[in-house]
Simulated scan of single mutants.
Amino acid sequence: MNDSFVLTRSSLEDIELETRALTEPLPTNQLAYKAHPLYALERWLTKYQVLHPKGPILGFCKGYHVYPRTCVQTVKTKERWLREGLQVKANELPVKELKPSMKTQKLQDFEADDYECTDSKENIKLYGSWQLEPLNLPHAMNGIVPKNERGQVDVWSEKCLPPGTVHLRFPRAFSVAKRLEIDYAPAMVGFEFKNGRSYPVFDGIVVCAEFKDVLLEAFAEEEQRRQAEEKRRDETEALRRWYQLISSIVTRQRLKNRYNNGLPSEILTEVQHVNDKESNATVSDSYGNNETPQNQQLNTSDNNLDLKASISTHTKEHEHVFLKEYESFDEETSLLTKRCQCGFSVQVEEL
């Protein structure tokens, strides 16, 4: 009930305001006519507005004729009317001409025109809605798309399409049509501004209506084939990377096993012998040896130094010789093991 009351009250207020506007006298201030809903002065019209018809005259304000707001008409260029699916009738003269402006205007501006941003010195010709008729474009015949002088179709809206044609926007449409040898025309859908200049924007193609299903089926097949090829390429790349990772792990483990466990047996025996002597010395000291713990620690460090010196000397002076009779080959791992008489061994992978 509250909603209905609000709506009823709002409707009554609108009716009252309209009644006042219709019954009130003509304003005496010129600025009041600039945006007045009922009356207009010719001096406050914009450059894209004219009076048609120029009458009746309702009165005067400071010497200027007062006209009804319904007489104010918006005029546009031929190109602007084409975007709405309308064309200028034959032998119609422009109702207004403007001098070209050097100032670049934005595309979103209602009064701006893309064709005004050119360097042409000709006047801009404007036409009114009473000079127009529905757009009459040539029909598509024998599978040939009618094109303009630039070899394309201006698709400002669906009304701008030539009869018997369709606008296809799927990706790579031109390549599919070219592969099937079907006549097509690039679809120019607007302009974009960069660095003070306007550039055409293309989106899709225009083809005859009878080729629409054929092109869509061909695109679906090509898209399916492209996705399968992309999937196969991704799987191949994944397998390659997995093989590289596993090969790196195997090589790292092989090098670790080879060089961590590759000390000669004689050096290992000497190390074990020194360890045994240290343990025996520790036991004898526990049964009455007069040496202090500090002396025991010094003896142990001396033994370690002697062991390191012997190992380094043995490694530097000894020259490994790998004889044929000491070689062994593992067929499962394809590894060839070469051994020296000192006990040192080396594994080589046979390719």
Rank of each mutant, 00 (worst) to 15 (best):
F60E: 14
F60S: 14
F60N: 14
G63A: 13
Y64P: 11
Y64C: 12
H65T: 12
Y67N: 11
P68K: 14
R69C: 12
R69K: 15
T70M: 14
T70Q: 12
V72N: 02
T74H: 03
K76Y: 13
E79T: 14
R80Q: 15
W81D: 04
W81R: 01
L82I: 01
L82V: 00
Q87P: 12
Q87I: 00
V88Q: 07
V88K: 05
A90L: 01
E92V: 05
L93E: 02
L93N: 03
L93V: 09
V95Y: 06
E97D: 06
E97S: 10
M102R: 09
T104C: 14
Q105V: 08
Q105P: 02
Q108P: 08
D109Y: 00
A112F: 04
D114Y: 03
D114T: 07
D114R: 00
Y115K: 09
C117S: 10
C117A: 11
T118N: 03
S120W: 00
N123M: 13
I124D: 11
I124A: 08
K125W: 00
W130A: 11
Q131A: 13
L132D: 10
L132G: 04
E133Q: 04
P134L: 02
P134M: 05
L135A: 06
P138V: 12
P138Q: 08
P138Y: 10
H139T: 15
A140R: 13
G143S: 08
G143D: 01
G143H: 13
K147Y: 01
K147W: 01
N148Y: 01
N148Q: 05
